[in-house]
Every structure is written in structure tokens, then in C-alpha cells.
Design a binder for these strands. Structure first.
Lengths: 211, 211
DNA sequence: GTTAGCATGTAAGGAGTTACATGATTTT
DNA sequence: AAAATCATGTAACTCCTTACATGCTAAC
């Protein structure tokens, strides 16, 4: 069901969860959030918003000065403010509390981390630990391939791999610090934790959050 | 002309420049080279090889045990060894000596760096410096947006941006070290420098390497 | 009154992935 | 002789970008 690319949708849901916004602003915020590198293109954002509208996750708010004739020519112009629906909020809560493998892939980890404020500490720990294992697996692979091919490869190739290795090791240390902090932190249950809802069948959630 | 995705093609050209290989091996080597993260898929590699074959950059070598009937069913099976043609070598030399902006984008910098052994020191310096400026521009953008929105954003979002910032700063320092090393290094002109060829019209190259 | 920046959108296509389908060779 | 791994390939699809096209609003 609704097997979309997730990362962008999650970013939009998360940002609109904080406050309604129009597309232009959204682009800037998404770019700043994960962009961190190239900017998100409108050709990517607007179709995504339209799809989310069709899926009933957001509503368009065209509360704006249309002077007299709204111009039949080519359709509307003027700001459109997007706002989360109840369904959108639910979807955000579900996505953000998923603690399965897809949460720590390269593509999604960044967004997931950015919205950690909306999750339970349990979820945060699971995602951080999953991410760390993922990186450690890779690290092991690179280290062994580096050991195998020693002496056989070019200086620059070697230097590139060494640098990559160090970056990953650094990220592992970062994750370890975060994990320790989470574990030590006071048991502040609440905050903006959206996962504390119960599912509609009456049973408490916190099960099936494996996405 | 021939405006392909470059990165993969360059990687293939570079690896085949060292030695002929078949696709399976090529995949592993490309993955190790830049992969460093997810593996390259065959669905990506083989079509690229076919295209390069059509472009006359490589040749297929089917020097292998076809027992009796080569099996009209569905076409060939058995190893195919790929080898660079003269045209392929020329193309590699041209791509690898390009020192323009496209050489230091995220997508291509890794491959470019891996094949630095096949370039002149001048090219290496230009690419390293270009890459560094690129990162510094970004850094400036992130830093100022971080300063602007201070106090207004969530802890986790902030932490993510801080970590990204530090990674980029670290890469800048790495590049600076490499640049210094290149500048200090003895004027060893030769090596495997493929850029030292003259173009077919007789004029020495080293011009128009802005790709 | 025109430039610059805000704002929304679409069409074409690039660069890759996943899932599938097949067969050859080596190891157990 | 079965299983694992080597080896080649295609079709469909995903996610995103580029380039284009349009118009509104504020500042100079």
C-alpha cells in the first residue's frame, strides 16, 4: 500500500507537522534539513505534494487575494498553504515510529534522525543501533578488502578508501555517543511523542512498528 | 557529444585501462572503488558495457570453451572479457584530464580521485582545489543558515546539521593536506601519465581540458 | 516601470535499482 | 548429483533533475 519513495514524503509530513507552509518555503526547509548538498527541485516537490493531496494526507489552503476574475487562463496562481490532515498526522506517526531496517538505510536515516523529537526513546535507540550495525558491517567489508589487496593497488585509490574508512569510523563513534546519551538521559516520557496513540482496534500500539 | 552519466563509464574505462576483465569482476572492482556503500547492480553495468561497445570504446573477447553447438537458444553464455580499444584509451585520457567543475561534483569526484595516478600534477591540483572551494561554499551556506535559525530548531535537527558540518570540515582539511602534499612533492614528471599525448591534429594538448 | 525574487507547475529524460530469467563452473 | 557461486542479461519501475513556462509582488 502506497509504496512511495518515503524519504521526501516523510520530510514533508514532518515539516508540516510543525507548521503549515507553502511549497517554496517547504523546499528551502527540506533542502536545509537533509539537502546538505544539492537543493531539492520543484519538479520533485510539487508532484509529491499533489500525490499527497490525492492520498488525503494534506489539504491545500488557497486563502489569498484573487482580485476579481480568478483567471481561467492555465489555472490558479498565488500561494497555496499546505496543511496536514488527520490522516497525514497518523501517517507521520506511523512512519516515524517504524524501527525496521529501512529506517537506517543511507537514504532515510537522515530524515528519520531529524524527526527523532517525535519518537519514543525506545525507537530512537533501535534506529541508532541499527544504523551503527549497518555501518559496522560495511566497515568490516572494506577493511578486509583493503587487507586482501594491500600492495596491489594504486596510492590514490588506497588513500580514497582510507579516507572513506575513517569517515565511517567517525560516524560510528558519533552514533555510539548518541546511544550512550539516550541511555543515560532522564526518563522524560512525554515531549511531542506522537507514538503514544493507540491504534483504532483498541490494542495499544508499540507492536508492529517494524514498518 | 555522448552525454552519458560519465561516472560509471569512467570507472569502467579506468579499471579496464589497468587490465582486461569480465563483467562480474568489473562489478566487484567498481563497487570497491566507489561503491563504498551499496553494490553496483548488473542492471546498471551490462547496459553500460553494451553502450560502450556500440561507441567503440571497448571490445568483447569471447575466447572460451563453447563445447559443440553454441546453442541458438537465447544467445551466448560464457565469460566475456572486455578490453579497451584505442578509442577507449583516448576517451579515458580525455575524461581523466578534464579539470572543470564537473570533476569535483559529488558524483564524480570519487572516481576522478581514484584515477589520479593517470593524471598530471597540474590537473590533480586543479581538481583538488575545485573540490575544496565547492565544499567551502556549502559550508558557508550551512553555517549561516545555522546561525540564522539558532534557538528556533529542534535539538536533533541541530545535532544532525552540526555533524554534517563537521564531516565537511574534516573533508576540507583532508583536501588541504593532499594539496600541500602535491605542491611539495618532487617534480616526478612521468609515471603512468596518459595526458602527455598530443592530439591528432598535431597541436599539444593541455588546452581545452575544461571538458 | 522594470528588475529581482517569490511562487507554482509540467514534460522529458537520466541514472540507477529490483526482480526476473538463464546458463556455466566449481565445490561438497 | 546437489548446492553454491560465477556469469550474463532484460523489463519495468523509481526517484529525481533539468529545462521550460507562467505569473505575482515588492523594491528601486
Amino acid at each position: 500500500m502506497a509504496k512511495r519513495g518515503d524519504a521526501l514524503e516523510l520530510a514533508v509530513l514532518g515539516l508540516l507537522h510543525e507548521a503549515p507552509m507553502h511549497g517554496y518555503e517547504l523546499r528551502k526547509r527540506v533542502t536545509a534539513l537533509l539537502g546538505w548538498g544539492r537543493v531539492l527541485s520543484y519538479g520533485s516537490l510539487y508532484p509529491c505534494l499533489k500525490q499527497m493531496l490525492r492520498d488525503g494526507l494534506i489539504t491545500e489552503d488557497t486563502a489569498h487575494l484573487q482580485p476579481a476574475a480568478p483567471a481561467a487562463r492555465g489555472g490558479r496562481r498565488g500561494k497555496i498553504v499546505y496543511k496536514l490532515t488527520v490522516g497525514g498526522k497518523e501517517r507521520f506517526a506511523r512512519l516515524v515510529s517504524a524501527a525496521g531496517p529501512s529506517a537506517w538505510e543511507d537514504d532515510s536515516f537522515g530524515v528519520r534522525f531529524a524527526f527523532f523529537g517525535a519518537t519514543s526513546r525506545e525507537t530512537r535507540l533501535r534506529v541508532l543501533e541499527g544504523r551503527r550495525s549497518r555501518l559496522e558491517e560495511r566497515l568490516e567489508g572494506v577493511r578486509s578488502s583493503l587487507a586482501r589487496s594491500r600492495e596491489r593497488v594504486d596510492t590514490y585509490t588506497l588513500e580514497l578508501q582510507r579516507h572513506g574508512l575513517e569517515s565511517a569510523e567517525r560516524e560510528v563513534r558519533w552514533l555510539t555517543e548518541l546511544i550512550d546519551t539516550e541511555r543515560v538521559a532522564p526518563p522524560q516520557t512525554g515531549g511531542t511523542d506522537v507514538t503514544a496513540t493507540t491504534s483504532s482496534d483498541g490494542t495499544p500500539s508499540a507492536a508492529n512498528n517494524w514498518e
